[in-house]
Design a protein around this nucleic acid. Sequence first.
DNA 1: TTTTTTTACGCAATCGTTCCCGATAACGAT
DNA 2: ATCGTTATCGGGAACGATTGCGTAAAAAAA
Lengths: 360, 360
Amino acid sequence: MGIPANRDRSQDALLTPYSLKLFSQVQTVTIKDIAKALNLSTSTVSRALRGSHEINTETKRLVLEYAEKLNYKPNPIALSLKENRSRAIGVIVPEIANNFFSQAINGIEAIAYNRGYHVMIFQSQESYEREVVNVQHMVARKVDGILISLSGYTTDMSHLQEPHNNGMPIVFFDRFSEQIDTHTVIADNFDGAFQATEHLILSGRKRIALLTSLEWLSITQERMAGYKAALKKYNIPLEDSLIRHCGFANEELLENVDRLLALSPAPDAFFTTSDRLALSCLTILKDKKVKIPEELSFVGFTNVKIAHLIDPPLTTVVQPAFEIGQTAAELLFDLIEEKKKNLPFQKVKLATTLEVRNSS
Amino acid sequence: MGIPANRDRSQDALLTPYSLKLFSQVQTVTIKDIAKALNLSTSTVSRALRGSHEINTETKRLVLEYAEKLNYKPNPIALSLKENRSRAIGVIVPEIANNFFSQAINGIEAIAYNRGYHVMIFQSQESYEREVVNVQHMVARKVDGILISLSGYTTDMSHLQEPHNNGMPIVFFDRFSEQIDTHTVIADNFDGAFQATEHLILSGRKRIALLTSLEWLSITQERMAGYKAALKKYNIPLEDSLIRHCGFANEELLENVDRLLALSPAPDAFFTTSDRLALSCLTILKDKKVKIPEELSFVGFTNVKIAHLIDPPLTTVVQPAFEIGQTAAELLFDLIEEKKKNLPFQKVKLATTLEVRNSS
DNA sequence: TTTTTTTACGCAATCGTTCCCGATAACGAT
DNA sequence: ATCGTTATCGGGAACGATTGCGTAAAAAAA
């Protein structure tokens, strides 16, 4: 009986709980508020706020003062919508609970904050699907650029290829893919692995097991190559059964360690090429009462801060994580600000250091 | 002379350098594109996309199909601008390179992703100023809620008080302040410290030094209280000189350790109540060749994953970091979605566990 | 004094989306 | 024949900020 079609909506409005008004939004001062208060147009206020010369000095003063008084802050979302950018960069790492990555993030943030950019951090949790979702979210949120270290299971690159083709600046660090032509920043994985292996050889080890990450990862390939090169230099025959690839499950690692220890002759050294592997592997070996370094030398490839506190103090290849983050961020900003836009893409390689301790 | 007002724009398009098209923006399909292509209005398309009943089934099908084909994704920025929300929550922690916090973040993300929210992670780096900037940025970006563990130097709360008063849902975890009335999730710091101290007492220690964080922090207060309660229970006199507060600089810690060791009689146990303190302190003690646990028992309050690998294996109070993150996130979503809006704010306390190892 | 220039501001479009109103049929009921 | 319903859809105003263009008045040049 004469009930309008939108009855529900008006009722909704009436039924809106008080708390919604109270809780739903943080009111902010807008340029419009300032304009109304000072009897100016929004365009004038806008120009005054950015100090345009075509605004009267007195007017500018009025606007600036009033804006200051009301604590006016420009709405970054409105700006993003208008300008298709966000003054933020996105970072994707497999996990932040990993010293290498958290240090790299610190390096990135150091550079970004200096340049007035914000950093959005995402974890792929070593999941390809999560990585895709994160990339899409970042793109949708109009980040000005992306820094990424690929998840362990990322082989298809179309989620990065598409934004890359459309002009989104992307820089790889640590784990990269050749499929996308852009800047890359990595530790000198080859040399790090070479040094570690050479160190083990020079300390008398001959059957050096290599426990390494998923085979197709760039870091795995490079570290494996360094290992092989060192063996070759010292004429030690390469034995495939000494090389084991591990995913991210602990059982997998346990099985691989078992197989290695079951070899005869058994290996006399373990070189594990990641944070996670090194520590989990050490745990397993200690459980098995393997004496380190007497029965087995042990070298890690990790950035744990407390390698020296471990029993035995852990010999480890350390990556310049902070610097890697810094460099990657700098290269990204070069792309974003199109400084050196005609220069070819670089592959920056930063030196690792071998910290020799008692475990080898 | 009859030049239309929008002449500039068409010229712009012509004058737009190629590189701008190439580099500046990732083009996306909008609702307008779909409307134009299908000869519909944007409102119809919008409604069709969200399955409104007042759109013809056939029209809906057309729109949905076309949107699918062009891979239409709604622009979250436009939505945020319109709806004053972002479907994202913000997290601020002192530092992510800390197992407790990174585990808590994982707990938060687990809950958030289930609910279809994104998580924005920020570090205060134990700096009050950074914390303020981060909070403001999150508020400006219209996060739907904030999870925060306060920086070590945050005493003034106005940066949180203001958004809180304006209805921004905020939940504290780990480090909180009584100044803001909202949900809080913490480990049972009192009980954790009590257990650790009691454990030391029962194993025969009498002069237990407490190395703890900045005095005014909630966690410090609680842990100190637990320590004192345990002493009292066993009638051990409280000695102020055994309690030392440390900031975040290493020299400060070194000085405090020196003073403790110089006491006579010297302490026979160290209880350090944070990740950072425990590990740095252990490093110092090992440098000084202090024998643990013979000369000195040592208990930490940390979430390092490799406490068992340390020499000596570290006795430690472990906080349920992941669960703390989960619980905090759940409470935040309760606030956001106004489920239990009339319930009083809770202070959730989750049990810690004492993992006894050789260092004590 | 007349013309030109400068100064200082407002108008309106735009970014992508939603949603409040209308508008226009078709249809059945009076 | 008139009217109210219902089903479908479009117009246009928001959200907050920027910016090209137009233009009045004031200042400068003629």
